[in-house]
Computed example of a mutant assay.
Amino acid sequence: MNVEEMRMLWWMCGKTRIDRIRNIEIQRQVGVAPIDTKIRERRLRWFGHLQRRPTNAPTRKLDSIETIEI
């Protein structure tokens, strides 16, 4: 997956491998994080290991649920 990502970034910058610029430099120029890192973050967030909101964010706690009978 990393190869396809880097090919796209090289193409976006108008550079070729002949220019002999490292992949890290291309990623810095474009301002993107490696796709592997992003996928890992999303996976961890899905399983609840990473929280989106800070710990001091205001949250509402549900005390009880009332059911309405029709």
Rank of each mutant, 00 (worst) to 15 (best):
P34N: 06
I18V: 12
N56M: 09
M1L: 08
I65C: 01
T37C: 03
Q27M: 15
V32Q: 02
I24A: 13
I68N: 05
E25W: 02
M12I: 13
Q51V: 01
G31C: 01
T59M: 04
R20G: 05
M8P: 00
T37L: 08
C13E: 10
W11V: 02
R42V: 09
I70Y: 13
R43I: 12
L50T: 10
I68E: 09
I70H: 09
T55L: 10
L62Q: 05
L44C: 05
W46Y: 11
E66V: 15
L62A: 03
I70L: 14
R28A: 09
W10Y: 14
D63N: 07
M6T: 03
A33W: 06
R42G: 00
R52I: 07
I39K: 14
D63R: 07
E66G: 07
I68F: 12
V3P: 00
W11A: 10
D36P: 00
V3C: 00
R45W: 03
S64D: 08
P58R: 11
G14W: 07
E69I: 11
R45I: 05
W10L: 14
E66K: 10
A33K: 14
Q51C: 01
R20P: 01
R20H: 12
S64L: 08
T59E: 05
A57I: 02
P58F: 04
M8E: 12
R17V: 08
M6Q: 12
G14M: 12
R52S: 13
R17H: 02
T59D: 01
Q51H: 02
G14F: 10
R52C: 06
P58D: 04
T55M: 03
C13T: 06
F47W: 03
E69T: 11
I24E: 15
T59A: 10
R28L: 10
A33L: 14
V32E: 11
T16E: 03
P34F: 01
I24Q: 12
K38F: 06
G48K: 07
M12D: 04
R22F: 01
G31R: 02
E25K: 13
R20V: 08
A33I: 13
E69V: 12
N2C: 01
D63K: 06
K61S: 09
I65Q: 08
I24W: 00
D19G: 04
I26L: 09
M8R: 10
M1C: 09
G14K: 06
W11N: 07
